[in-house]
Design a binder for these strands. Sequence first.
DNA 1: GTCTATATACAGATAGAC
DNA 2: GTCTATCTGTATATAGAC
Lengths: 213, 213
Amino acid sequence: MTASQDAVPVRDAKTVQILIAAKDTFLELGYAAASMDQVAQRARVSKTTLYTRFPSKEALFAATISAECERRGMRFQPEDFDDLPLEEALRAIARRFLDLIWSPEAIQVQQTVTGEAARFPEVARIFFDAGPAHGRAAVAAFFAHAAARGVARVDDPEFTAQQFMGALQGGPHCELTLCLCAPPSGEERESHIRKAVALFVTGVGAAVAAAPH
Amino acid sequence: MTASQDAVPVRDAKTVQILIAAKDTFLELGYAAASMDQVAQRARVSKTTLYTRFPSKEALFAATISAECERRGMRFQPEDFDDLPLEEALRAIARRFLDLIWSPEAIQVQQTVTGEAARFPEVARIFFDAGPAHGRAAVAAFFAHAAARGVARVDDPEFTAQQFMGALQGGPHCELTLCLCAPPSGEERESHIRKAVALFVTGVGAAVAAAPH
DNA sequence: GTCTATATACAGATAGAC
DNA sequence: GTCTATCTGTATATAGAC
């Protein structure tokens, strides 16, 4: 029972090299413009080797995106924030969320998958389940928990999570996915989070809640 | 001075045919996978004709996206909604916004531009200025106007507009850009707008505004 | 299993007939 | 100005040497 007897080393060293090279090539050039020659050269492997591991360019693309999604994702439990007041808990969640979706790698994945979604629906599905849907479920669980504890007014946790994450993406994310601005600094991120969470908590309604009758 | 003497018919019939065919081809297949042969065939024009109007595939792509952006965009004045209470005005704006960004054509443009943004920054800029930035400015002007009239609590109109539009995109837009769901029906759109605007106006804070002292 | 060399197809762009 | 036919490069995928 030595370590070398691990039963399922599905991915040998060359396969890992190939997946890394494929990630770099596909995310940099896009699916159509990337060539199998480039992937083979970057992986320092012949094209034959490449085709023995992956039957086609399409299969390699799907495997590449899938591997990239597996490595990421927000993982937290709703109870992790029980000690914090609502706004601080939301800021903590927002921090993890924006660190993820504003990272250059995540931007590249989103660009590539979005651009090919119409031609590769199964790749889009892999990305969606491992990315947006996963994060949305985690945030929705937090809102459900917060509502149960009475610290937030939440009718539909899933919907509230979508609104919260949508509002957080709000400005910079559009520019980022279009390669029109650099990744925000830590200070800019904190400023954005402060303003976005405050607005989300209080709304824009002008003093409507006071004294209905 | 007959109609045929129009001085600047920059776009003759064949150029229009080409731009239509290019739009269909690029938006369906993506930039790299689309071929000039296909564009020429769809436009019922020879490749030579195509190359006399547009010097390269890249130039044709930029012209295509530019033309598509020109035809769209939300156009309204902040005063257009003075007769309506805040929530109704926001719903009216939301309706125009979602009709625009949930349309299949807009989705395709966004997919294509996003996918090629890293290789075509000038195309990304054209799209951004004519699309997201234009709409954002219109909505920001509304919030500034509403704040001046005292019907909304708005510190930073630009930021508030971003949050509002981000929250509206919230759920379905992600699935739509990934081709994972059909365009929402009119009823679904109305339901989404009602919930999103209500949440945006009141926030999630639990009964904090009532009676501070 | 791995590599070199290649088969086959099609891309973007152009020369010459009309 | 427009079209047919073509040049040149490069893509995916594979056959055969080792």
